[in-house]
Structures are given as C-alpha cells and as structure tokens.
C-alpha cells in the first residue's frame, strides 16, 4: 500500500534521514520506534508532504507521491495526526471536526461521520460547541485523532499520540489505536513507549540516527530491543 524507498531528508547541512525504506500493507498496524532524533517524525512529515526528500521514492497504492503538496496527499488517502496534536484552539470542537472533512463534499456522509465520532468519543460529543482550546490534553488528543478520521483515510499516521498524557490516559489512547485497527483502519504509528507499542502492532521498524536499524514482527523486535536495551530506556 505504502512503500518508502531509500528516502533521504536534509535540513540544511544536517541529514535527518539517510536512506530510510519501509512499507505498510493494507489492514496492517506498523510502528516506527526509536529514541528522540532518530528521524521518526521526519519520516511521517516527509510522507505527508510537509518535508521534501532529497532522494528516494515514496509510492502509495502504486502512485508516486513525492513532491505532492500536503493537501494533495490527504486527497490520496493519507492523513497525519501530528505530534503535539495541533488542534485549532480558537475553533469549536465541531469546527475542528468539520475541517477534518475538508476534502469531502458529501454533506450527508459528513453528518453521519460526525455523529459516529460523537458516539466513539463521548467527551467530544458533549462539547461540540466549545472552543477546542478549553479541552484537556487527553481530550485534545482524541479530537486530533477524530479530526484525522473525518476524511476517511486509507492510511492513518499517528505521531506520538501518548506524549504528555497521564498514565491512565496513555492506556486509553493505546486501546483506542488498537480498536481503530480492529475496525479496519490501516495505521502507521510513531511512539516512544516501546513496550506498549509492541503489544498492539503487527510489525515495527527501529530507527536510529536516520536509518532503519532493525525491522521485523513485534515479537522479534521485542527480543532485539531487550538485547540492545542499553540505549532504549523505558521512556514513557
């Protein structure tokens, strides 16, 4: 479905990605793990079209998406829920959700999805008319994910959804991601919480200083990480 081949990304003189290759198949849930600065977020931002690769190819369902604008890539079916949520604090919850469906024009479908989101995320349903900035951190994360789902993406990319949340909220978010996957959403997940992530994903890539250091099924990766755990502390 998604294939990233030998992608390099530079920020000025610094090379952030040195030839990353990965793939995600339909109905899979795949994780990118690694320490801070390993290039996880950079990889997602590059797939989403915010950063332009200096080299390499990215194809989605057989079509190249390198050089496309972020808004075109959303139309291809890839949605990124970025780090730190980035909800629009001045807009109401409902406006945030409706903007998530900006690429769609089927009013009835949008209304139906909006109701569905309110059922799946009751907190949001109760606060549709409130400015999103008044929500708590966990609620904002739910809103960010719900907003991403409103475009009915073929591939949902989540960047550190558990970051900065209280432990019980972290549980909720991981449950939610697992549920979304069961409901048939293909997911590419970036996380620092390696333990929890490997519990819910099919496969994972371990990134280190801009390169894929190891890849495999969740169990294989867990063994590898245990061996190498010297530098992958249990960061939550």
């Amino acid at each position: 479905m998604l294939a990233v081949e030998d992608v390099q990304v530079r920020y000025g003189a610094i090379t952030a990605l040195r030839g990353v290759s990965l793939h995600v198949e339909k109905d899979e849930i795949v994780a990118l793990i690694g320490v801070n600065g390993a290039g996880k977020s950079t990889t997602l931002m590059t797939i989403a079209g915010v950063l332009k690769p200096a080299q390499g190819t990215i194809t989605f369902e057989g079509q190249s998406i390198v050089g496309r604008s972020p808004e075109d890539i959303v139309r291809q079916g890839i949605v990124l829920v970025p780090e730190e949520r980035r909800i629009f604090p001045g807009l109401t919850v409902e406006e945030n959700l409706r903007l998530g469906a900006a690429i769609r024009s089927d009013r009835a479908g949008i209304r139906q999805d909006l109701e569905e989101m309110c059922e799946r995320f009751p907190v949001l349903g109760e606060r549709l008319g409130q400015p999103a900035g008044t929500l708590s951190g966990g609620e904002q994360q739910q809103l960010a994910i719900a907003r991403g789902l409103m475009s009915r993406p073929a591939l949902l990319m989540l960047d550190e959804p558990s970051l900065g949340l209280a432990p019980q909220l972290v549980d909720e978010i991981f449950q939610l991601v697992a549920q979304l996957h069961e409901a048939g959403v293909t997911i590419l997940l970036v996380e620092q919480n390696v333990e929890r992530t490997l519990e819910i994903v099919d496969r994972a890539y371990l990134l280190n200083t801009g390169e894929v250091e190891y890849q495999g099924a969740a169990d294989e990766l867990r063994e590898h990480v245990d061996v190498e755990s010297s530098y992958l502390g249990d960061s939550t």
Partner: peptide, 24 residues
Amino acid sequence: TVLGSALRAAADDFVMTRLLGVRA
C-alpha cells in the same frame, strides 16, 4: 462556512490546515 473556518484555522496553524487537505 467551511471556507470561513478554514481561514480561521489557517491563521492558527497553516501547515496543520493543509495537513487536513485544505488547499493553501
């Protein structure tokens, strides 16, 4: 209107607005 809230959203965070598919 959707365009109206897109304008307000873009004022908040333009890149994020584009990540939702709103045309810059």
